[in-house]
């Protein structure tokens, strides 16, 4: 594996870490009062409630979108991590290994992720209120996620231009990693924070549920 993989992975991890630290630092400096309302208990209560599929009313009202979205997020992490090819590469570099997913299963789930992304695009195109909120950047973000999966799928099946597809796969994956801390993909760390704060305000101060 070339150095770009490590650089992009480090940018992703450190970028998110730095972002997290900056947020906490800014809260401490400018909005310290927020800290007096946050409790671990109510933060976790809210986060867990929202992690249980179809528990919040909001998610039950949109079961298709929420179901697809939930699976999509799970697969987004599980697929690359438990993919044989990736494990082999990690193993070569670090001598670490863990059980890999069945290739056929991975193949089907990849199609699932691609389908979910296509669904997101269609939703953005055809549901009026979502369309109203959508900007060009939203499609770019979807494309950024789509590319590594599509290229990975094509590479596995060695359909066409194998070499170029693999290069595209590697590059698009690296770009995605690099972009995460600097884009709305960073909701992977900010969403738990906003959830924790709202969960605490609702649970700790307002004695109400927020799901």
């Amino acid at each position: 594996m070339g150095p770009m993989v490590w650089i992009s992975a480090l940018i992703c991890i450190f970028g998110l870490l730095v972002k997290f630290i900056l947020i906490i630092k800014e809260v401490y400096e400018k909005e310290r009062y927020l800290l007096s309302y946050i409790t671990v208990r109510h933060s976790l209560r809210s986060i867990i409630a929202w992690l249980i599929p179809f528990y919040p009313r909001s998610t039950r009202m949109r079961p298709v979108y929420y179901g697809i979205s939930y699976l999509f997020h799970v697969l987004l992490f599980l697929l690359p991590v438990f993919l044989m090819s990736h494990i082999v590469l990690i193993n070569e570099s670090f001598n670490l290994s863990w059980p890999a997913m069945n290739d056929t299963a991975a193949d089907i789930l990849t199609i699932g992720v691609i389908f979910a992304l296509v669904f997101f695009v269609l939703r953005r195109r055809f549901i009026p209120d979502v369309r109203f909120l959508t900007s060009f950047m939203d499609y770019i973000l979807i494309l950024m996620v789509l590319l590594p999966f599509v290229t990975g799928f094509l590479a596995y099946h060695q359909v066409i231009l194998y070499k170029w597809i693999v290069i595209a796969h590697v590059l698009s994956g690296e770009v995605l990693l690099i972009v995460i801390p600097f884009s709305r993909f960073s909701h992977m760390i900010t969403a738990p924070l906003t959830r924790a704060y709202t969960g605490s305000e609702f649970g700790n101060i307002r004695h109400a549920r927020d799901w």
């Binding site: 909005e31 949109r62 909701h187």
Partner: peptide
């Protein structure tokens, strides 16, 4: 007048539209 909280709200919104039904 605002800080990290406001920024997080702006950065975190994925424009999913789930709030519409509320």
């Amino acid at each position: 007048e605002t800080g990290a909280r406001f920024k997080a709200y702006v950065d975190t919104c994925m424009r999913c539209g789930l709030c519409s039904d509320a």
